[in-house]
């Protein structure tokens, strides 16, 4: 008989706690799908995700404008964020001295700690009036949202790309320098290509964060139910749709919001799976 010791008991307890997080994921998934699927089946999945009209009172549920809205601000956020994040991570990983790294890296990571409502507040009080007065539209827009989200996802993309760059062996840099490459050539031609899968994964995870963000988006995006055709158009995203209407929804309306959640869930899952695939392939 196997002896029961303190070690094995602690091991079992830790295992159960670890499994409970999987349990939570499982329950959430089941709940969202159980609540959301009936409406999707009733409307038809294709009609649900391609429908242009969202009229809960008349039980017309089409979420294309919100899907378009979510992707529009995600794309905008990436345009803002990716160049900055890449430059930051390359600078920190390859060029910054110890002192600079010790100051800049935590500062960027601190951006992730600012509550999103604060970003939203700054967006509403500063960015929205600025866009309205100097660029056009009423200020609540894809543009404003993209700028704010771009800053919000900066730490995610920067720190994952940074880790990917630091994981490239020193021998690559030496090999390049010994061929007469300058430091920038060594980084550009040898180090960045070697880190490319990690960098792509970082961008994908950043996309997931951008699409999942709610509070700041509600405050800045304007929340109109239209497919945005210009960066100055107001939009509503999948996340803000749920947050805005959940308070008063009931019956099939409430289920339709869960169905929105199902779509969001699938998009974010797909992005995460894609990112971890890319990372795993890079490890091999």
């Amino acid at each position: 008989m196997k002896k029961i010791t303190g070690e094995t008991i602690i091991g079992k307890i830790l295992l159960m706690i670890a499994l409970s997080s999987i349990g939570a994921l499982f329950l959430i998934t089941v709940f969202i799908f159980a609540e959301g699927l009936p409406v999707i089946f009733k409307t038809g999945f294709a009609a649900f995700i391609t429908g242009m009209k969202w009229k809960p009172t008349r039980e017309i549920f089409g979420i294309l404008p919100m899907i378009a809205g979510s992707f529009a601000i995600m794309a905008g956020a990436m345009i803002v964020s990716v160049p900055f994040a890449l430059c930051c991570s390359i600078y920190l990983a390859e060029f910054a001295g110890d002192l600079m790294r010790r100051v800049v890296k935590p500062a960027i990571e601190l951006l992730a700690g600012i509550p999103s409502v604060v970003y939203g507040f700054i967006g509403v009080t500063v960015l929205v009036p600025f866009i309205k007065n100097y660029i056009g539209g009423n200020g609540f827009s894809v543009l404003g949202c993209s700028l704010v989200l771009g800053v919000m996802v900066l730490p995610t993309i920067t720190s994952i790309s940074y880790d990917a760059l630091r994981a490239v062996p020193v021998s690559y840099r030496e090999g390049a320098l010994a061929l007469g490459a300058t430091r920038w050539q060594a980084v550009k031609m040898a180090v960045v290509p070697a880190a490319s899968s990690g960098i792509i994964a970082a961008v994908i995870l950043g996309m997931g964060r951008a699409i999942g963000e709610t509070m700041a988006v509600i405050m800045i995006a304007g929340n109109s139910l239209i497919v945005p055709l210009s960066p100055l158009d107001p939009v509503r995203t999948l996340t803000s749709n749920i947050a805005l209407e959940m308070g008063y929804a009931s019956g099939s309306h409430r289920q339709a919001l869960f169905a929105t959640g199902v779509v969001l869930f699938i998009i974010i899952m797909a992005l995460n799976v894609l990112a971890s695939r890319i990372i795993n392939r890079a490890v091999k």
Partner: peptide, 30 residues
């Protein structure tokens, strides 16, 4: 230029994570 004229092979082989051809082309491109 000095490192172009005097090249170094390291203890541990350190090809870049690029294709064979791009590894060879690396130096000339630099």
């Amino acid at each position: 230029l000095l490192r172009k004229q005097i090249g170094m092979v390291f203890q541990h082989p350190n090809p870049f994570a690029l294709s064979l051809a791009d590894n060879i082309k690396f130096g000339p491109r630099v």
